[in-house]
């Protein structure tokens, strides 16, 4: 209250230029602040609504578009890669099946050859065996014949030595009976 008696430029200032009370409550400064505030807000509003906000919105929309496009392209590439992999797998499976086929065919061929060869060998072996058996049978027959002859001759000699007269025919049949018995 004392300051009001001093001669100053403003009722809100002390002679030394300090504040009287709260400068916020000084009524003579409010008009100035309100005026400049309205001007400032109008300028900022104008700048924002005319230039800044549409531009930033456009940038964001642009980026969204780019991202969506890139994602779509990536999806595309991914699909292509999957397709290529599928084709590769198919080719691999085909090759494998073909290889399997070739193996089976070769196996069958080899088996047929083998069968043929073994059949041939079997037949040869059988023939040889039969031949051998025949020979053995011949030899056995001839041996039996020889035994019979020797036995007849020996029996005849023995009978003659024992003084019994006997004709060769009787002795022969007796020997045969003995051989059989």
């Amino acid at each position: 209250m004392a300051t009001e008696t001093h001669q100053t430029a403003s009722a809100c200032l002390t002679p030394e230029g300090g504040a009287v009370g709260m400068p916020q409550l000084c009524p003579e400064w409010m008009g100035n602040q309100i005026f400049w505030l309205v001007v400032t807000l109008a300028v900022i509003f104008f700048i924002l609504s005319r230039i800044a906000l549409p531009r930033i919105a456009a940038i964001l929309a642009d980026r969204q578009g780019t991202i969506t496009g890139d994602l779509a392209r990536a999806e595309d590439l991914k699909a292509k890669a999957a397709e290529a992999e599928e084709a590769y797998n198919k080719a691999l499976a085909d090759a494998r099946a073909e290889a399997q086929n070739i193996i089976a065919a070769t196996k069958a061929e080899i088996k047929a050859e083998l069968d043929e060869a073994s059949a041939k060998a079997d037949a040869e072996i059988a023939a040889r065996a039969a031949e051998g058996e025949k020979k053995i049978a011949e030899i056995r027959a001839s041996a039996t014949e020889s035994v019979k002859e020797v036995a007849e001759a020996t029996a005849l000699e023995l009978v003659a030595v024992m003084g019994i007269d006997a004709d060769a025919k009787t002795v022969g049949s007796a020997v045969e009976a003995g051989l059989k018995g």
Binding site: G17, A19, Q33, W36, T40
Partner: peptide, 29 residues
């Protein structure tokens, strides 16, 4: 003087603060 920082001063000269005076409020806004 904690409140002196809130004083509104004219930027040019020492005149009274009218509605359209260029003050430190104008400067900082």
């Amino acid at each position: 003087h904690p409140m002196d920082q809130f004083i509104v001063k004219p930027l040019f000269g020492d005149g009274p603060v009218g509605t359209f005076t260029v003050t430190n409020v104008t400067l900082w806004m």
